[in-house]
Design a protein around this nucleic acid. Structure first.
Lengths: 214, 214
DNA sequence: TGTACATCAGTGAACGCGCGTTCACTGATGTAC
DNA sequence: TGTACATCAGTGAACGCGCGTTCACTGATGTAC
């Protein structure tokens, strides 16, 4: 191990030190800029300053690299949700608090989609399922994946007596659908042109609808 | 004009007859199978039985072909929505009828997404906006685009007195978001595995939520 | 009705590009003695 | 502490592939006379 293991472009040792991580980071940058299709193996190695074939010591193929980037993107999404949750004051009225936590989850989701559209689109390019296997690679600081954060918020709603227990099953998919759809329309669809304030307003109204409709 | 202008693969005349339409149809087949990325200019000419360069007599470049396919996909989506609308009986209670029409729009949207995921994804790969310019190319039999069909259904809800007039502005985007999100989760996301019946049930519950929440 | 001609739709060869992946290699590294 | 060696991470050249796009061409077509 040398002291330069974290500086990707220039390298004074023959061995790289941590090429796996460096490729993952380069791939994530590519995804940030252009979504899943932009995660190009050769370009990642180019950015790291390494021969294309070197990537095959760390990833089976391009798909394996993309899957790793995808997990990283999901983890970043989880962090964005956690940041919003951190802004909700604990204690106080449990009903209001539970409601605020669900809204925070949705707000974080929408904010991430708008601030990091490339990563957001990449998060949904997984070859397997988003909610399957609570992989650490997809979790935020608290160890929960985006899907688990949403589930926890809905459980909180039930505990606070806001959401009738018999309505709980499948509620993830209803709320998720609404928020996910708005996110897609905002970044790729006809709502592309909305500015920050308009988008926030649309998010608020959508979350109102979800709250009333659940 | 020869009598063989609509048979793409075999051609006995030097001129093709209607290469523009043939390329559009071939491109649509490609989109049906693999979404927007599968709309490959060379492959479309190959299927039509024509040299790659021939396409440039009818489309400025690959993007122009993809845009045309995208419009066709939107028109197909409009037709799916119209089919559901046709099943709603006219007359009767105006309130129930207006509600049923909104549900029909949503149901058609979800059905199309599931039956034609490739075309559905292609419909949203437009370089410009979905609701802009009521292009005939994007409309169904009745001359309305998917967005216009949704707007009309919401207008009907206002006229029937179900939806308060002050809530009407922007209601397209709320309902659209919900349905679009579910569609995406069903075809690309974690709800991929759901069978026909489960998906229909999810759609029903989602439309319940939208109705309550709007 | 017959002929000369202009038009322009489709041809075919070629271009440069960048991709993912393979393979025999080389040389820095850590380890066993 | 010093040396021989096995390991294996990264090299560099090459592969085949398919793409979008260009260009000078050719020959079927419709039209003007």
């Amino acid at each position: 191990m040398t002291s330069t293991e974290t500086s990707p472009p220039k390298r004074d040792t023959y061995r790289h030190g941590n090429l796996h991580r460096a490729l993952l980071e380069a791939g994530t940058e590519l995804a940030r800029g252009g979504g899943p299709d932009a995660v190009v193996l050769r370009e990642a190695t180019r950015r790291v300053g390494v021969a294309p074939s070197a990537a095959y010591r760390h990833f089976a193929d391009r798909r394996a690299l993309l899957d790793a980037v995808c997990s990283a993107a999901q983890a970043a999404l989880a962090v964005a949700m956690e940041e919003e949750l951190a802004g909700v004051q604990r204690g106080g009225d449990p009903v209001n608090s539970a409601r605020a936590r669900l809204r925070a989850v949705g707000t974080g989701y929408l904010r991430f989609a708008q601030e990091e559209p490339g990563l957001f689109r990449t998060a949904f390019s997984a070859s397997d399922n988003l909610q399957s296997a609570a992989s650490t690679a997809r979790a935020g600081q608290g160890g929960l994946t985006p899907f688990q954060l949403l589930s926890a918020a809905l459980d909180g709603l039930v505990e606070a007596g806001v959401l009738p227990r018999e309505r709980r099953p499948g509620a993830e998919f209803l709320s998720w659908s609404a928020v996910h759809g708005l996110a897609m329309l905002l970044i790729d669809g006809p709502l592309r042109g909305l500015d920050r304030a308009q988008a926030q307003d649309a998010g608020r109204r959508l979350l109102d609808m979800v709250e009333r409709g659940l």
